[in-house]
Amino acid sequence: MPVFHTKTIESILEPVAQQVSRLVILHEEAEDGNAMPDLEQPVKVVSNAVQNLIKVGKETINGSGDEILRQDMPTALIRVEKSSKLLEEASAMLKQDPYSGPARKKLIDGSGGILQATSALLLCFDESEVRKIIQECKRVLDYLAVAEVIETMEELVQFLRDLSPCLSKVTREVSAREKELTHQVHAEILVRCLEQVKTLAPILICSMKIYIHIIMQGGKGAEEAAENRNYLARRMSDEINEIIRVLQLTSYDEDQSE
């Protein structure tokens, strides 16, 4: 049984995966099998659904600026279409001979193929969505890198104006993503990192304020204040980098590393 790494993909494909597995088992146990019913109508419904997916898939490809999606999605669409053709062939063969063994094989290959190709397609789409979140995370990293050169209150205000909306977006999107993951360990890491980021953000801003006050008064301790600020910025960057790493993981990666 395939493992789906988001709850959305799981909810779409898990029921059909179970049905396909059952069909394979029934086929093996029944050996020569019973006469198959006329499958023309349900196969037609699948073919129409596949044509619609191909249309929507092509629109998604054309409307996306994501090069990886543009490269990977057509392959999945071709696989869905090929599997649909297998079902049409199986249906035609079964009309001639309801006991046909090769037709049953095509039926199993076709339905299994549709399941796998749809899974690949949804994964491709999902990975593209993850790349959008990662892009936002990288924007936060870019802003954090600027923290070291902020030396006036005006610059700090601008820094906050830039960072805040971006950080809010990352928080919102990573939080939603965490709820979507079927892999509990990955979800927990994201929650932990996000909590750290939320805790560190106001402390970092405070440390930047302290640094600015110290250098404005020309007082002692500027070096220590800068060190403290840099440490906090680095800690936040580390947490964001960990979020990026975990966002890219799938259950499959984890199983392989184990």
Partner: peptide, 29 residues
């Protein structure tokens, strides 16, 4: 979003097809 809806429709259609095919086999077991 449209992709998800289209995938849902395919999953439901494939499920119905496989169920119909399974029903005939199940009678034998």
């Amino acid at each position: 979003e449209m992709i998800l809806e289209a995938a849902k429709t395919i999953a439901a259609a494939t499920s119905a097809l496989v169920k119909a095919a399974s029903a005939a086999q199940r009678e034998l077991i």
